[in-house]
């Protein structure tokens, strides 16, 4: 049986991603999920600025949201939140 190799583009030069790097999905690393209490959240965006993985989404209407496809669950957002609005919940507590 002949071995299958992965094809790579010329000189391994690959296009830059535009929204996220689909080839390195990291959400499955997470064992504690960040959960925001929107009632407590002051929309100061501190969690947003400090996320090493750009996984805190923010909009004026929706407030804080997490990109769980990539969030590694490091918990930096929870630690930097000045009002303690972000808790870390074990992944096993969620159905999905």
């Amino acid at each position: 049986m002949s071995k299958t190799y992965k094809q790579v583009p010329f000189a391994a030069i690959v296009p830059s991603p535009t929204v996220s790097n689909e080839h390195m999905v990291t959400g499955n690393w997470r064992y504690l999920r960040p959960v925001v209490d929107k009632g407590q959240c002051t929309q100061c965006k501190t969690c947003w600025i400090f996320c090493p993985d750009a996984c805190v989404d923010f909009s004026k209407d929706e407030g804080v949201d997490f990109n769980l496809k990539y969030c590694k669950g490091c918990g930096v957002c929870s630690s930097v939140c000045p009002v303690g609005a972000i808790s870390r919940v074990p992944e096993l507590d969620f159905d999905e």
């Binding site: 689909e22 090493p52 750009a54």
Partner: peptide, 25 residues
């Protein structure tokens, strides 16, 4: 202020840096 920081990201989600990585931030 933090609120004034540009929304647009150029270092996107999807990298194998450790959770909580300072250099990634």
């Amino acid at each position: 202020t933090i609120a004034q920081a540009p929304d647009k990201e150029y270092y996107l989600p999807g990298h194998r840096t450790c959770a909580g990585c300072g250099p990634a931030l």
